[in-house]
Design a protein around this nucleic acid. Structure first.
Lengths: 195, 195
DNA sequence: CTGCAATTTCTGTGAATAAAGAAATAAAAA
DNA sequence: TTTTTATTTCTTTATTCACAGAAATTGCAG
């Protein structure tokens, strides 16, 4: 496929962004290309268009499929596999958030819980244990919150975002529930956070 | 400093997580150590504790300072520089989000805007242009939303998270404003997003 | 069942990144 | 001012990662 200068720049930038967020540059570029194309593409065309090796595309596609970002599609009258991604950007965002949550946040919460249940936890003193606990509580909060957000359809999600921080006005002085607020018990000096 | 098994595991895991999100492993480990320690530490002690070169610590600290995560502190009766981080986990989360937003989201929005203002934009057809635009709109929404969230203090933020998706009930059928919802005009086939 | 086309897996190479050590600089005490 | 200690910067080495090409496998068609 022949790429316009605009498409080329878009793909290049997206590859760069991916790299900064721990995603392989080529993987990100391929996804950007499929998003822009809007229609499923065969692997060799992807390779040609981006100027990377066919095998590289194969592995990158496998990665994207593992992330549920790309699906195998068959096209009438063509033996080759075609690969496509959703053209709904909110769909894609949801998928990425969901996957990162499952692969990274949840396992981290599990590790923290494990550390907190260890019998030798207090060797370092209660303050350090409390900090590990605070981190766990925070990640749990974010996890539960994103879980709920992921269930919303695109239009509702967009509205919630638009409402933004104005939500706080609905909360002010109006307790959400009786539990302790996350990050409530702060420990240790804050000298390092000074101006 | 002597590390307990718990602390060691915490730091190792955090380094691993950092790596997955595009942060240098040592940089993440140093930050984890400072968070756990709760008190500012001199560079050589960090190097000893983590078993990395003194120069490596120097460079990593510089990086953490650039991220506004670590501050230089002076300790009475000690010539050496000490480095500390906030022990408020929500503080840290806010800082990380703010920095990533400024370094990566905002510049990306700028690039997309630039692409969209290019005279040769329509070379690829209106559908591709529309997809780039949708991405820009989404990032703008997220940016504006996070901007507002970052202003909230820890307690309010925790409450907003607890409220979670229940916010939607407040919205249902009750338009937030008159503008078009983000991601509204979907284009191209969705064949790739099948079951 | 044979042969071609498509695709994946494996392996070696090159590039980018990270880290160590050496050298240079800066700062403070004697 | 000299000496010692702390810190950074620069250079070299090592490790990791990405990628290409070759080899192997799969699957369809004749």
């Amino acid at each position: 496929m022949q790429l316009s200068e605009t498409s080329r720049r878009f793909i290049l930038h997206w590859g760069e962004m991916g790299a900064r967020w721990g995603v392989n540059r080529t993987v990100a570029q391929i996804h950007a290309l499929l998003y822009l194309a809007g229609t499923p593409l065969p692997a060799d065309e992807i390779a040609d268009t981006l100027g990377v090796a066919r095998s590289n595309v194969s592995n990158s596609i496998r990665e994207l499929q593992a992330w549920n970002l790309v699906k195998l599609v068959h096209v009438q009258g063509d033996r080759r596999d075609h690969f496509g991604t959703s053209t709904d950007i909110w769909d894609l965002a949801r998928t990425i958030v969901r996957e990162r949550k499952e692969r990274e946040i949840e396992p981290t919460i599990a590790v923290l819980k494990d550390l907190l249940s260890s019998p030798e936890l207090m060797v370092d003193g209660v303050e350090r244990a409390a900090r590990i606990r605070e981190m766990q509580v925070m990640l749990e909060s974010l996890s539960a919150w994103s879980e709920e957000m992921l269930r919303l359809d695109t239009d509702t999600l967009a509205k919630v975002l638009k409402l933004g921080a104005r939500v706080q006005k609905l909360i002010r002085g109006q307790p959400v529930d009786g539990g302790a607020t996350a990050g409530g018990e702060r420990v240790a000096d804050r000298s390092a956070a000074g101006p």
